[in-house]
Amino acid sequence: MFRNYKWFLGSLLLLVNLSAQVKLSVKTIPKKVNIMLDGINIGKSPIINDRINPGVHKFEIIKSGFAPITYDILVNPSQAVHLDFFMNPIYQVKFKTQEKGLVFELNGEHLWDDPFIRLDLEAGDHFLRVFKLNEIIDEQTIHVDEPKKFNYYLKKPVSEE
């Protein structure tokens, strides 16, 4: 009898919980990406007809070759919430210069002094700073939208091949 009572109570709580939940669908570009919701893998995209409780949640989307996405959302009480994530690709870029004794810095944190190097860059704009003998001699923004090769010439805009 006690067991039945517990079962009934459990079912009731489950029912109440389900009725309060919001229908969830998650789509990503590219497809077939693992979706982590509050640290739990809820499957690969596209996800349809899943359920989520109203409130604050964290989505983490990681796929090789794309910039990872971490997204905090406050889910409103509603019938359904549809999320679309467009992942930013990472392109391999070759960076080459004929100049001697230069040090390059990208986005204020990544440094190198090789005259020829391969870089994995997130698509979009990156800020390039050039040093010579610890002095800034050039600053430029480079735009990455595909795998490409950059040639750097001192105080000239970076040229693409």
Partner: peptide, 19 residues
């Protein structure tokens, strides 16, 4: 090959639609 992936911290494009 530079050892790290270089991100530009661009805001990802996310669409949230409530029904």
């Amino acid at each position: 090959l530079y050892p790290d992936v270089i991100y530009n911290n661009r805001q990802p494009l996310i669409s949230v639609t409530y029904e």
